[in-house]
Simulated assay, not measured.
Amino acid sequence: MRILVVGAGATGGYFGARLVQAGRDVTFLVRPRRADRMAERGLRVTGLGERTVLRPRVIGVEDIDGPYDLVLLAVKATGLDQAVADVARAVGPDTLIVPFLNGLRHIDTLAARFGDGALLGGVAKVATALDAQGDIVRLADAQDLRYGARRGTAPARLAEVHRVLSDAGFPTGLSADIDTEMWSKWIFIASVGAVTCLMRGSVGEVVAVPGGAEFAGAVVEECASVAAAAGHPAPDPALRQTLASVTQEGSPLTSSLYRDVTQGFSAEVEQVFGDLVRRADEFGIAVPLLGLATTHLRVHQNRVEGTRVG
């Protein structure tokens, strides 16, 4: 299968690199600035003792020569609209798209543009970040891809997708209920993001103060209540893992949202929090802590955008 990885950042770049190493037919679609950096330094994966340098096939929008078999979409949710426009020429009648974005709002956007039949659900779990030089830095030994047909869809070539993504240097799984898995990841992302961004510290720093663990638990409860109302209650093991992650004493865990905020970068406020609060309002569920996190991060986002305009 011809694979197009849209985005070569911390997530797409990492899993794309592993697929390249496994001999898959992979092309990266990137913006000009990222293309220049990759031309200069290659695609580098570092951290945890690794020093990998690859020279994969890299193209811009103008270089797309026709449809690909599989599109792996791994951009920040704030860049989704541009990515949809960029990738349109690479999507044909037999193309399957697997998005690995936070939240669920992107599903509606992609389905409206390319149709339900082309769209799988996907969950990526990886602890990576881009450093100042654009290299992918591994922060922990977490790496996992899950994907599958969403409820009400029956995409062709699903087994072939699973075959080409498997045995490529990271665990994979063809999910029988990818919708619930996407909701479970949303609960985790929103919980860790709210706890660390509101309190401006790591999980360990939050739970070290009186009331910190109780606050973190209340955040998880709010997130889980929205998922349950939507018909996708988090499985008990996933919920226990999320609760343990945000209440672990001494944990250095933060979140990509926290890193974006503390470094003055744009954050996925509406995709992770705004959409979750909107759904809670529709279900008539009170989520005051999530509402507080949303307002807090919207102030940050306005600040970032005002700086960019100025």
Rank of each mutant, 00 (worst) to 15 (best):
D141T: 07
G122C: 01
A229F: 12
G204T: 12
T78A: 14
P155R: 07
Q143F: 06
R259N: 15
A244D: 15
V207H: 02
R279N: 15
T109M: 07
V87N: 07
A132P: 11
P93I: 02
K185L: 05
I136R: 06
T52R: 11
G291C: 12
L292W: 14
T254W: 09
D260P: 09
G173A: 13
V304Y: 08
R33V: 12
S202I: 03
A293N: 01
T172G: 06
R55T: 10
F273K: 01
V61F: 00
A234G: 03
E181W: 06
T242E: 09
G79D: 15
A176P: 03
A229D: 05
A149M: 08
G306E: 14
A168T: 15
A228M: 10
G211D: 10
K185M: 05
S266M: 09
R34S: 11
A8W: 06
I187N: 02
P235F: 02
G12Y: 10
A35F: 10
H300L: 05
R146T: 07
R44P: 04
V137I: 13
M1P: 05
A17K: 08
W183P: 11
L145V: 10
L165V: 06
V304I: 15
D260T: 08
E160K: 08
P288F: 01
I285D: 06
L48K: 12
A228N: 08
G310R: 11
F273Y: 15
D116I: 02
P56Q: 00
L139V: 13
L130R: 14
L130D: 15
A83H: 05
A190T: 04
A129M: 15
S225M: 02
L80W: 12
